[in-house]
Design a protein around this nucleic acid. Structure first.
Lengths: 101, 101
DNA sequence: CAAATATTTAGCCTGCTCGCTAAATTTCAC
DNA sequence: GTGAAATTTAGCGAGCAGGCTAAATATTTG
């Protein structure tokens, strides 16, 4: 095994695992996934009883973790899921299925 | 897809993802994994610069999430990893690789 | 049983998370 | 360019997370 993984990767883990720690954020990802991978900010905010700015912040955390990115379309922002980024979690889990020697 | 998963499973996700959100806790799991799956509380605490009670709490969070369990051995507590519980994360990730229809 | 060892429990404090409301920004439509 | 629509930014407040020290709880040993 690699004795320690590079710092950059550690930071990536940190961002991604932190992002996934909140149920609202997991639900945003799930919904996005089922709606084909993209939704406008407004539609995402519409899922929740929360005030809109609350959702905005959750989205930003997901985006900072690289799990989302957005494209401006007219006066709407369309958020897209980046499924590849979830691979990071998968990679982390792999350590536990591999025989550690 | 299941429109919504049962509440119990949601709680399980919540506990596990929360447990994995902290770098110290991820590191405890990793170390445990590489040391063959079990270590005493003292040895685990020895990894970190933290005061011992701080580590105790992290361990408790992992245990509450079902990722660890312990066996008393003399005056030591031996903590064991429960790798099966990590399967939950794997299952969650699966939603994103399956075609959502 | 007294002392030593291994570890947890109790309780305190600081700072970050996540909710809110109000204000600002950007873009489109008339 | 004014107004409406879509969304973010700013900033506040409560509560939880995670660090610490001191005290309590087993368990073994002499």
């Amino acid at each position: 095994m690699a004795k320690h993984e590079p710092k950059a990767r550690m930071d990536a883990y940190e961002a991604v695992f932190t992002a996934l720690a909140h149920p609202v954020r997991r639900r945003i990802l799930m919904t996005l996934n089922f709606k084909g991978g993209s939704m406008t900010a407004g539609t995402i905010a519409g899922i929740f009883a929360h005030a809109w700015p609350t959702t905005t912040r959750h989205i930003q955390i997901l985006e900072a973790a690289g799990l989302l990115y957005h494209v401006q379309e007219g006066r709407s922002r369309v958020y897209h899921i980046d499924r590849r980024r979830l691979q990071l979690v998968h990679d982390w889990l792999e350590w536990f299925s591999k025989d550690p020697h």
